[in-house]
């Protein structure tokens, strides 16, 4: 592996760019294909690379005379939680333990206290400000649990537009119906709005805030690992 190739790959990973490192197993020659790059000219390789970006699965591909190893590097998943509420006190540490890079946001300083959320990346700011340095992307799960439209709506719109892999919003059916109206007025399509998991969380009969956190986390993991049967349908 060329040292420059290693540096390029690590730079892509630090910048949260999806990349596939293609190594010719006979010659050891490698090349880096970024998501969004022009597809490789070999049709077999082009298809394999496109598939790798979707599935995230690395593996060996036979393309013509060559045996190639495709190593896929997709960004680590993030979870942005809007609302420093009781559910979040359980969800934030559990999600971090599961491997999510968690940021918790709530402009209400009475909720967003260090004491309630020790060790969590906590921002007592409006979501617009708190996400200015790291916008929601396709590799982000957005969990909105304040059920206050002033706080929840902007990140919901932002997550749906960015194609976040999971978008969940707490609220009764009534609350959600009004939310659908507002988001429709904001110009989102029915398909986009339909991606919101609401009521939030897998239906496991969760009652306590901790149980609801389990239901939300499980739903986010399912959206990550089994995107084909993603929630919100």
């Amino acid at each position: 592996m060329d040292a420059e190739l290693l540096k390029g790959l690590n730079a892509a990973r630090r910048n949260r760019q999806a990349a596939v490192l293609v190594t010719d197993l006979a010659t050891g020659e490698g090349r880096l294909v970024m998501k969004g790059d022009v597809a490789p000219s070999d049709p077999v390789l082009a298809e394999a690379v496109a598939k790798a970006f979707v599935t995230g699965k690395s593996g060996v591909v036979e393309a013509g005379e060559s045996r190639l190893f495709l190593n896929v590097h997709l960004p680590a998943p993030r979870m942005v939680i809007i609302g420093a509420v009781h559910i979040s006190q359980a969800l934030a540490p559990m999600a971090a333990m599961t491997g999510f890079d968690v940021r918790l946001i709530d402009p209400r300083t009475a909720f967003a206290t260090e004491e309630r959320f020790a060790g969590i990346d906590l921002r007592a700011e409006w979501p617009e400000e708190a996400l200015a340095d790291r916008p929601i992307d396709a590799y982000t799960a957005l969990v909105a649990v304040t059920h206050d439209p002033k706080i929840d709506d902007w990140p919901l719109v932002s997550a749906l537009k960015a194609g976040a892999f999971y978008v969940g919003a707490l609220g009764s059916r009534k609350t959600h119906a009004r939310r659908v109206e507002r988001l429709t007025e904001a110009g989102l399509s029915a398909e986009q709005i339909g991606r919101i998991a609401a009521p939030i969380g897998l239906d496991i009969g969760a009652q306590s805030p901790q149980e609801i956190a389990v239901a939300i986390l499980a739903q986010a993991v399912a959206a990550l690992r089994k995107p084909a049967d993603a929630a919100g349908a």
């Binding site: 190593n71 680590a76 998943p77 890079d101 590799y139």
Partner: peptide
Amino acid sequence: MTSMDMETGAPGD
């Protein structure tokens, strides 16, 4: 989005 991985994704630590 698999292996958008916690294994091979962005270097956390």
